[in-house]
Nucleic acid binder design. Sequence first.
DNA 1: GCTACAAATGCAACAAGGTTGCGTTTACTG
DNA 2: CAGTAAACGCAACCTTGTTGCATTTGTAGC
Lengths: 151, 151
Amino acid sequence: MARAPAAPVADVSVDLIRAAGVKVTRGRVRVLDALHAARQPLSHAEMEMRLDEGSEPAMDRVTLYRILDSLVACGLALKAVDTRGVFRFSAAGAQRQHANHVHFRCTDCGGVFCLKAEPPPPPRLPRGFRLNELAFDLRGTCAGCSSREAV
Amino acid sequence: MARAPAAPVADVSVDLIRAAGVKVTRGRVRVLDALHAARQPLSHAEMEMRLDEGSEPAMDRVTLYRILDSLVACGLALKAVDTRGVFRFSAAGAQRQHANHVHFRCTDCGGVFCLKAEPPPPPRLPRGFRLNELAFDLRGTCAGCSSREAV
DNA sequence: GCTACAAATGCAACAAGGTTGCGTTTACTG
DNA sequence: CAGTAAACGCAACCTTGTTGCATTTGTAGC
Ligand SMILES: [Mn+2]
Ligand SMILES: [Mn+2]
Ligand SMILES: [Zn+2]
Ligand SMILES: [Zn+2]
C-alpha cells in the first residue's frame, strides 16, 4: 500500500499529440480527450460546455478554436460542417474508417448507413484543382422510415 | 411602326412568383432571375455582388435575406449549406439538371463546380431502402484557391 | 381608378460563430 | 538551466444571419 501512485499509466491523447509532432499542452490534451470520449462530433460551443464541467479553469474561447484547428491540421481531428452551418469536430480515428465506402443518408430520420460498396475512382479534375476527400452519398428513405411512411 | 411596345414578352420569374401565390415585387423578380442565370448555387454575398452590377439601386441586405428565404418557403428556390458553413441558394428547377454529374466542392471558398463525369451507378441497397438522390462530391481546393494559397 | 390592408421593405440594433494582432507564458531543445 | 519557437489570453474585429419597428408597396375589392 501507500504505493499506488497518481500513476500516468498510459495517456493515449498525450502520446498521439507527441507523435503528431506538436507541443503537448494541457489544452490540447483536454480537448483531444473530450473528442475521444464524445459519441458524436462536437461543436465549439458544446466542447466549451464540456470543458467547463471539469475542475480546471476554462480556457479562452480563441484558444479553443486554435486548439481544434491545430488538431485538425496535424491529422488528429476532423472538421465538418453540420446542417446549420456550424463546424463540428471529431477524433480522427473515428471517421477514417468511413473513408472507403459509400453511405446512405436517410432524409427522414437523418440516419447514416454504411454500404458495402466502395466509391468509384475520382474523375479527372480541371487544371489546378486539388482533391482532398471524396464522398459518394446516396440519399433517400431508409427501410424503417419507408415502411412507417407507407401506412 | 410606332407600335413596338416596351413589351414584356414572357417573364418567367414573374409568372413563377405569381403562380406561387406571393406578391410579385421587383426584388423577388431580380433575385429569381439571378438564380436562374447562375451556374452554381449562390451565397448571399455573391448574390449581393451580382445585384450591385445592375442599374437598379442595391436592395437592403436584410431584404435580400428575406427574399431568399421567401423563395425557399414557396418552393421556388433551394437552400443548402456549403463546405464553409455558408448557405447557398439555387433555383428550384435547376437542381434536376445537376442530378447527373459529379460536383467538386471547394473547402476554401465554398464554391461548387460541375464536372463532366457522370456519377457511377448506385450500388445495391438493403431491402426496404428507397433511393431518392445520389451525390458524388469531390472535396478539396479549387484552382483559384490553390494558386492563391501557394503564394 | 381608388381604397384599404396585408405583405414587403429599409434601417438600426443584435447575436452567434469565427478570426486577427499582439504582448506574455510555456513546452521543448541543447 | 537557459534560449527559443510555439501556444496562450485578451481585446478588437469580421462575416453571416436574425429581430423589431416604422414606412412603403402590391393587390383584392369596390
Ligand atoms: Mn461508414
Ligand atoms: Mn452541376
Ligand atoms: Zn430513416
Ligand atoms: Zn475555392
